[in-house]
Design a protein around this nucleic acid. Structure first.
Length: 107
DNA sequence: TCCTTGACAGATT
DNA sequence: AAATCTGCCAAGG
């Protein structure tokens, strides 16, 4: 059921902790989406209730139309963007190797 | 049914 | 380092 995938993607995005960010590719990989494009599409349609501002592109730069709002919201959460770019090395959300994934045993 | 568009990513040039 | 090309999947015209 592809609806499940859609739901899973939202779940993963919702599981990203404040003060951290993730890339579309990461979300796609963790959620099992076939392509990161799906993430963007889902967010554009059904991401109103999700922390979409924590999702960045692979370079650490948010999407062009969201750029203002994105950086502003991130800054409010403690993420300090370097110009238009966020240090993924520091803020990128990665599953704790010691603790299980942020999925909370979704698998 | 084919073509275009879009919150992307990675490899090339 | 920056611009370009290619592959990717789904939805709408």
């Amino acid at each position: 059921m592809d609806d499940e995938l859609h739901e899973r993607v939202r779940e993963v995005i919702a599981s990203v902790p404040a003060g951290s960010v993730a890339t579309y590719g990461d979300i796609a990989s963790v959620s099992g989406a076939p392509s990161p494009r799906l993430i963007g599409r889902i967010l554009s349609e059904d991401g109103q209730d999700l922390p979409w501002h924590r999702i960045l592109r692979a370079d650490g730069t948010p999407a062009p139309h969201l750029l203002d709002e994105q950086l502003q919201r991130l800054r409010a959460e403690g993420v300090i963007p370097d110009g238009q770019r966020v240090d993924l090395r520091k803020y990128r959300w990665q599953r704790d190797p010691d603790n299980d994934a942020g999925l909370g045993g979704l698998f």
